[in-house]
Design a protein around this nucleic acid. Structure first.
Length: 515
RNA sequence: GCCGCCUUCGUCUAGUGGUUUAGGACAUCUCGUUCUCAACGAGAAGAUUCGCGGGUUCGAAUCCCGCAGGCGGCACCA
């Protein structure tokens, strides 16, 4: 423990130090991720340090899996913290030290009121139009009474003797902010000597860790005055504050589960790229003041400034997220994109990796990139390069990686299932469709395997199409016969990937529907 | 109920007293390309003129005051 305290002695005065302090009581929330991002950007912009502190003082609600999720997803979006990770649960004696100090100075006292009692009190105050605050029933208990209660092991908490005064501070995004502490009452700062509560623990940690700037969500703004008072009572210096605007759902209330996906993990699973998340989040409440809207994490560090952070809350616009994701997907190299898409196809059960040796490590999430895959339905083996071709023709159509499944499943199925009406272009009759399919079979059969290339297929078939006049009369039935979908990539590129055998087979199957 | 914060196109925003008939992006619509979808290119519409009312000023989205609305907080959660 001494080691940690010693370490902070070497921090230069004036050094910018920010922190992201999530409580591991849920998966990393997209709003929290933005808070983390802004802390990170501000620190890096100012050549300072960004630290991660897990606020796990609530023993009931804190879970190791949430802590893991936070760490994993922070790393995934590219936010790395300096120094070791701090956990409040490992710093109990520090809190105890300061708690004792407050007790000795009598700026904190034991309270033995029951929770029911407190709740009734609050309801009564609200109904009378008064501010809801503790009535200080235990504030003047004598030392003997306290000792008696404690000895009797009566359930107790520790309250801060909140001095009544006007608290004014400068918020980096909001400017001057004022509160009147006489309206707040004596807040509970700890359940006992080793169980501090949020308001107390942050104040102690931010001081101990020499945090220079506290950057957090606006929902924490009302906690700031009490924290400032605590700092004063403990003789701590006061950090700068910056309260970020909230992220709202479409109904303009604080973004929560009922609005849909809220955890970074869910977005990742749906196939949003980390670049997208970063770029999108940065623009929720910030902009560079220019018309440039595409920013990587590195370029954000260069451009970020707290002065340009918005005051008003921002509605989370999923359409814009999709647009950005489509953009970043189009920027990917075919190799990289294929690597990213394969896990979705495997997960869906369309493909399975074929590992050369038993010892091949199925690393991350059980999915590593193999060079060979087996199509589950047909048992045929396909190479990474084959999959790359498949993915490539859908690159510009992809908004989310997960969409690769519905877009390309036709390449991993033996037989397609669709209604014969799909084959019909405009007002074509069954007779006409049949004729077109027969013609297609005839023409394509003559093409040699070696000449089975997109360009060549196009040359030959477009010639036929011109003869008919309306190109759709041949291209639409061809494409739908090959894909079973009304929207897809072009017929020639699909035919090339499918190969001659399968192409002819699917045309035959389509013909079978018409009979 | 009490306290606080916020308020420019549907959404994210530019705008810090005159260069603004308020600019950009997403979304929407139209056209082009095209067998389809997407991408791409061109264009349109979109703020009853900047929540409302008052003031300061020759002049206000921009400064001041009031109001309204929205949101957040008021835990032995963070």
């Amino acid at each position: 423990m001494m080691g940690i305290i010693e370490k902070f002695k070497f921090i230069k005065p004036g050094e910018v130090r920010t922190r992201f302090a999530p409580s591991p009581t849920g998966f990393l929330h997209i709003g929290s991720a933005r808070t983390a991002l802004f802390n990170y950007l501000f620190a890096k912009k100012n050549k300072g340090s960004f630290i991660l502190r897990i606020e796990d003082t609530d023993k009931e609600r804190s879970k190791p899996e949430f802590e893991q999720d936070i760490i994993e997803n922070l790393k995934w979006i590219g936010i790395e913290w300096d120094e070791d990770l701090y956990k409040q649960s490992e710093r109990e004696d520090i809190y105890t030290k300061y708690l004792k100090k407050l007790l000795e100075k009598d700026t904190a006292y034991y309270c033995f009121c029951s929770e029911e009692e407190l709740e009734d009190q609050k309801q009564e105050q609200m109904s009378r139009g008064l501010p809801a605050r503790y009535n200080q029933k235990c504030a003047q208990l004598s030392a003997e009474e306290v000792k008696k209660n404690l000895d009797a092991e009566k359930k107790a908490v520790m309250r801060f003797r909140t001095p009544a005064q006007k608290i004014v501070f400068n918020d980096l995004v909001r400017g001057k902010v004022e509160f009147d502490s006489s309206l707040m009452g004596d807040v509970v700062i700890a359940k006992d000597l080793t169980t501090p509560l949020y308001n107390f623990a942050v104040v102690v940690d931010d001081f101990e860790m020499k945090i220079s700037h506290v950057i957090r969500g606006e929902d924490l703004l009302p906690n700031t005055p009490i924290q400032i008072l605590l700092q004063k009572a403990l003789g701590f210096s006061q950090p700068e504050y910056a309260h970020l605007p909230l992220i709202l759902g479409s109904d303009k209330s604080k973004l929560s589960k009922r609005h849909g996906a809220v955890s970074v993990a869910e977005y990742k699973k749906q196939g949003y790229l980390s670049e997208t998340i970063i770029n999108f989040l940065a623009f929720l409440g910030w902009n560079p003041g220019t018309e440039r809207e595409i920013f990587s994490l590195a370029s954000l560090i260069k451009e970020f400034s707290m002065e340009r952070v918005q005051k008003g809350a921002a509605v989370f616009n999923i359409k814009r997220l999709d647009f950005l994701n489509g953009f970043y997907i189009r920027q990917k190299s075919p190799d990289k994109l294929t690597e990213l898409c394969i896990p979705y196809l495997v997960q869906e059960g369309l493909l399975e990796p074929v590992f050369k040796t038993e010892s091949y490590p199925p690393a991350y999430g059980g999915m590593s990139i193999s060079q060979k895959y087996r199509v589950v339905e047909t048992k045929e083996e396909v190479s990474f390069d084959y999959l790359k071709k498949v993915v490539a023709i859908y690159q510009e159509r992809l908004k989310k990686l997960s969409e690769i499944i519905e877009l390309t499943d036709l390449f991993f199925k033996d037989k397609l299932h669709y209604d014969k009406k799909l084959l019909k272009w405009k007002d074509m009759s069954d007779e006409e469709i049949k004729n077109v399919l027969d013609k297609l079979t005839e023409v394509l059969s003559e093409i040699k395997d070696a000449d089975w290339r997109k360009k060549n297929l196009e040359n030959i078939l477009m010639l036929e199409a011109e003869k008919i006049g309306d190109r759709g009369k041949i291209l639409w039935p061809l494409r739908t016969a090959l894909t079973g979908k009304k929207a897809s990539a072009g017929p020639f590129e699909i035919a090339e990937i499918l190969g001659k055998g399968k192409t002819l087979k699917r045309i035959k199957q389509a013909g079978g529907l018409i009979e």
